[in-house]
Design a protein around this nucleic acid. Structure first.
Lengths: 334, 334
DNA sequence: TTGTATGCGTTATCAT
DNA sequence: ATGATAACGCATACAA
């Protein structure tokens, strides 16, 4: 890699003159500027980023810690984060916690050494279940800002970008009750222990109780055979006339199992799931979803961390990205 | 952030003594080491990574440039890359080309300024279609190694990690011919213009021609309505008795459309697709897949770039990660 | 055993 | 208009 020193030698100029010339300082004559720029271009000179970072004490790099990236929700969030980062000349260092607390702690620790200016993260399942937050506090106390998204920790004071979990499921449930006249609505969950799972379930239960209906919750936990469990539940309770799934998998499973049981979707059974980009493509009939704007969440998280790092008097806040009910073929009135 | 200088002041020692003590140099007395370590721990001292990078002229950071991360194949590869990186104390800076040549060029250019020690990448669709490789050559010429995976550029001399695209599809097709006695086998493709698409198609065509069968290829390109196209093709050619899909979506679509047409899977129609982690969960019957070991590909790519950066006399090579035919419910004999 | 000096590449301040 | 010097934080060769 070409350095300022090399350029200065070849041009018989001092390093500082070359530096100023490249930065278009008014102190430097046009003639010199031209000479410098020409040689720099010829030798493909690029200022060493690491040296700049050391000098400025800013990396323009954000640490992004995700529980997983094979879940399409997080993949899309990452897409939004990356796009917004690129737009603002930021880099992102990506770490995956694999839903484990210790990996999350380790990533945070390892990057809190000047590698990044701040973090965007969704906490690991394990961290949320165990309510461990010391590592987050410690990072914040070191002066590194954090933007939490989706899976959020209430007790911590930092920026948050969340989804309207309660409201979206409440309204979807209400839609099934009011518009589709469903009464025996089953909620399927495999994320009961997560904050978002609790909120979504609450939305469902509230809508049900307001309508005087009895809630039914099928909690799959981390079950190895999701299909069998859904099949059995639908089979054992033939009175079920609608399903609300609060993740991106079990809604499609419900559609598939309903068909196996000879239950027509949507005539006999309405299904609403959660979804993202490609979800709708791979179910038949196409599943109606609560569409989380994952990309927008990523964008907003990145915008927020940059604002925090850039603005003078910055106050942390919680922002909500509304979801959208996208009706398709698995509900009656599309 | 605490620095060596601060520690040295508080301890009345020189910076270099503190540095050596923290690095457990034999030159330093145990007593001093103890004092230093204690204060360092108390003040949560961590050596500034940027300064170390500048000093050592190595970042221990790899640039990872992916076409997209919402495709589960790339998401899983990323998972493998990240895990192996963490294991070796490397960081990854992730950039997404969104399948565009210019974004790919830009990312490569921007990170070739000392930010990373090397790259792992799969080239964008556009780059591959246009056969643009100058940006790759340029990067290699600057002394930055690249590991290409999956979508590979033949003409370029660098490490490559590829899948046995030809062989896996050849064998899957042969399986349908020999074991399931299928004769009218349709290949569905939406990646015809990619190197991997060509190879997979060639595997299919070779198996067909060896068996004296007529190939049928449904090339979807970037069609907006995949379902309709698949539906129409299956409908127009009722003699089709098997489908080989060479991506992770259209196999499932074929299963769904077959059902719409009242064609029993697998009795009347066998289907084999491509798949990764969650693919099998969301089709009914469960789809038989050529399972690409995406995670293993990521691991191997990372191991390879580290070897290249670490080993003295390193020779670039091409490594093949074999796929596995995973039979399930969409073929007759599981 | 400890300390001094130097340099990584850049930029900013202060001469000339 | 140009150049010398210092500094970011760290690590190492070289004194003492």
């Amino acid at each position: 890699m070409t350095t300022l020193k090399e350029l200065s030698k070849l041009l018989n100029l001092s390093v500082s003159t070359v530096s100023k010339a490249l930065n278009d300082s008014h102190e430097i004559s046009d003639k010199t500027k031209k000479r410098v720029h020409e040689l720099a271009a010829k030798l493909n000179y690029k200022p060493n980023r690491i040296a700049q970072q050391l000098k400025s004490n800013r990396t323009k790099t954000i640490g992004v810690i995700l529980p997983t990236v094979t879940n399409p929700f997080f993949a899309e969030v990452l897409h939004g984060i990356e796009t917004e980062a690129t737009k603002n000349n930021y880099d992102i260092i990506v770490c995956l916690s694999d839903e484990h607390l210790d990996k999350e702690e380790r990533s945070l620790e390892l990057l809190s050494n000047g590698s990044v200016d701040g973090f965007i993260m969704a906490v690991a399942r394990e961290s949320q279940v165990k309510s461990k937050t010391e590592h987050l506090e410690k990072t914040l106390n070191q002066g590194l800002p954090i933007v939490l998204f989706d899976r959020v920790v209430k007790s911590i004071s930092c920026d948050k970008v969340i989804v309207d979990d309660f409201k979206s499921v409440y309204e979807a449930t209400k839609y099934l009750i009011d518009k589709e006249e469903r009464k025996e609505i089953l909620l399927i969950s495999n994320i009961e222990e997560l904050s978002v799972g609790k909120l979504r379930t609450k939305g469902y239960k509230t809508a049900m109780s307001e309508a005087g209906l009895k809630p039914r919750v099928l909690n799959l936990g981390q079950s190895p055979d999701v299909e069998a469990e859904v099949y059995n539940n639908l089979s054992n309770y033939p009175e079920i006339d609608a399903v609300v799934s609060i993740d991106h998998i079990t809604g499609i499973v419900a559609i598939n199992m309903a068909r196996k049981l000879g239950r027509a979707v949507p005539e006999e059974l309405s299904v609403i799931g959660f979804g993202y980009e490609h979800t709708q493509l791979v179910s038949s009939p196409k599943i109606s979803i609560i569409h989380q704007k994952a990309y927008a969440i990523g964008e907003m998280a990145m915008k927020t961390i940059i604002a925090n790092l850039t603005l003078e008097a910055y106050e942390v806040k919680t922002q909500v990205v509304p979801s959208e009910l996208k009706l398709s073929e698995s509900t009656k009135k599309a």
